[in-house]
Amino acid sequence: MDKLRLRFEKTGKAAYISHLDLLHVVQRAFLRAGTPLKYSEGFNPHAIISICVPLSVGMESLCELMDFRVTREIDLAALPGELNAVSPEGIRFIECYEPQRKAAEIKWLRCEGVYEYDALAPEISELDAFYRRGSIPVTRRTKRGEGVLELAGNVRDFELERCEAGVRLGCTVSAQEPAVNPELLVKALAQLAPELGPDFASWKRLGFYGSDMTAFR
């Protein structure tokens, strides 16, 4: 046993911790808990921690996965509790196990968005029709400049319902290759059907799946 995986939540205030800062936050929590983390060799040793699919700032998650290594046998069942006792608000560890599959095998991500409308929310059917279009090309900025991503086929299983703030939307997005940030669903509205766009949307990740749609562990 040396490679391990932790599942944890990142909600509330912790949603605003950036990806890079999170690695630092988690590393310190490990140190406070006395976990025997394994460090890289070399000039500037750092803990070997990797977040399977990085999360954008401001988005919540109930299903974050993190791989790390330890130098000796530890009590897997006890670790989440030990870490939770020394973690900042909003970071909550759920389970620790030896992973069977590589993070690269993650394909789908179930998430939930809440679309807030300050005035009247559009009809559910209108939003539903939009997301069922055969082609939803959305322009986005990437590291390599501006590019167009086709959402159709990369987002599926929509569930829409009314809620107090406006509309609650469940959907499954492609998590890797291509990585579809659910925020693009709102961007698509702004670009292609601005009249349906919400005043604000918040997102939460619910779970990762493999290409066969089985829950990814």
Binding site: G12, K13, A14, Y16, S18, R28, V57, P88, E89
Partner: peptide, 10 residues
């Protein structure tokens, strides 16, 4: 850097 405006640190 929104994390500077939320509190909630350990």
């Amino acid at each position: 850097k929104p994390a500077r405006y939320t509190g909630g640190e350990y």
